[in-house]
Design a protein around this nucleic acid. Structure first.
Lengths: 252, 252
DNA sequence: CGTATCTTTGACGCAGTTCAAGGAAGGTGG
DNA sequence: CCACCTTCCTTGAACTGCGTCAAAGATACG
């Protein structure tokens, strides 16, 4: 695995699990095939049979479900360091699709190699399982967010989550981070129409929230956390980390 | 583990993974503490530290997320045979809560024992991981269902899913199965109000769908599948099984 | 047999959708 | 470097699905 891919992936894993020398080496030794992919391309089509997993190295990807009329719901978003279909290791046929949102670099790793690494180092199996659980926890929160929050807090919650995740990925701070997605993408994540998302954004502007040129800027983290009822517990980060994140951001 | 718990749990696992003699024996040897719990009791409170997992033997349970005003969103529903917080094995602090919907029998199994079983039989680890992936896939579908479907198809989709899962659990057929939940519970699952859920139910009645005395009855499976745009692929069942389920039910 | 819980119905209001069109921004080729 | 074109953003006006409030029936349970 080349340096950049290894670095972002390891950072993601370490945010939830300690890892020994041997395990790190085993992960570094995985063969990866990086690929440059344009925005809005399908990486995995629903129903496909998979023999490798995908790691987002750069850019942005999403897992989606498609209605018969072509309408898409983006059910999960993946930032650099996320292995966006680690799921496919234990279940090699998919019920979901994956697409890029922005021009991205995606790296493929064969299931055979991943399974081999798990067989050699059982702890890696546990780390991957834990990663899947974190993914599920974020999905569960998304159900609640879409099911029980109005547009404004719903968008606020998404922006809070992405802030924390981007900060963990060291791509920015939670109050100023890159988000190379369109408003249509955000609407498809939140179960809203693009028109209404746009209006919702405008209502958040007085609160000091803006998105321009693919960059989110949040003036008052506390205010946004408040309107979102955001509690990072569901990200399943170890307590020290969660605590650090729970505190006010640079600009409180 | 006593016979009933073993039988329902094994059925669930086998629906997605083959299991050898040894692995079955290891699962049978787990120590379980069954407990009778009334309806609408919290089994796990959000944020709790866990040292054992819960298996639904009888009744109905749900994973929920709670808003600050007390409103709940039920993000996942668990039928007999489901290990409703297998997640807690790799991540022993919770971001979620669990509650019963109906009077239930819940069995507790210590994490130490589960981890031991995995260490002895790596295949069990893979089976559990696979189970977690299936759970996540159902969550992903729930996001799409709540985010992108109107009340009527949304309810239809839930009823289809529960039909298939109840049939797998051998508690009924997909067109006639027990559902010991109130309309308020269903509304909390679907991100609707109880009032609107009730009206939606009435609109489905002409299509031959009814719920009375805790029993769902579906006259035309095909019609319901059609209005729900239901495709069972996301349940991640092996192809033979999925195929059998894909066909028309007893009453087509 | 009485009380608590659950279901059903009506009237009204609003958040979010739909349809439609104008404006900004960014990329490409001449 | 400008003209053009595509994609994305923004705004307005009218419509509607679902929420809210309120109250009356039904059902189950002790």
């Amino acid at each position: 695995m080349e340096a950049q891919a290894y670095s972002v992936f390891l950072r993601r894993l370490l945010s939830r699990s300690p890892l020994g020398e041997q395990e790190r080496d085993a992960i570094a030794a995985l063969h990866a095939t990086p690929e440059r992919i344009a925005a809005n391309r399908d990486i995995v089509r629903p129903g496909e049979h998979r023999d490798h997993a995908c790691l987002v190295v750069k850019g942005l990807a999403a897992r989606f479900d498609q209605m018969r009329d072509g309408q898409r719901q983006l059910v999960a978003i993946y930032v650099p360091g996320d292995m966006c279909d680690l799921h496919s290791v234990p279940v090699d046929f998919t019920g979901w699709g994956l697409q890029t949102l922005a021009p991205s670099i995606i790296t493929r790793i064969a299931h055979t190699e991943l399974r081999e690494a798990i067989a050699q180092h059982p702890e890696i199996g546990m780390v991957f399982w834990r990663d899947t659980v974190a993914d599920g926890s974020i999905l569960a929160k998304a159900v609640a967010n879409v099911g029980r929050r109005r547009a404004q807090p719903r968008l606020a919650h998404l922006l809070c989550e992405l802030g924390v995740r981007m900060e963990l990925a060291e791509l920015g701070t939670r109050t100023a981070y890159p988000l190379p997605a369109t408003q249509v993408h955000l609407a498809d994540m939140l179960g809203l129409t693009a028109v209404h998302l746009n209006r919702t954004f405008r209502k958040l502007k007085p609160e000091g929230v803006s998105m321009a040129a693919g960059e989110v800027r949040i003036e008052s983290w506390h205010r946004l956390v408040e309107t979102a009822e955001f509690d990072p517990a569901y990200l399943l980060l170890p307590i020290e980390l969660a605590h650090r994140l729970g505190e006010g951001a640079s600009t409180a």
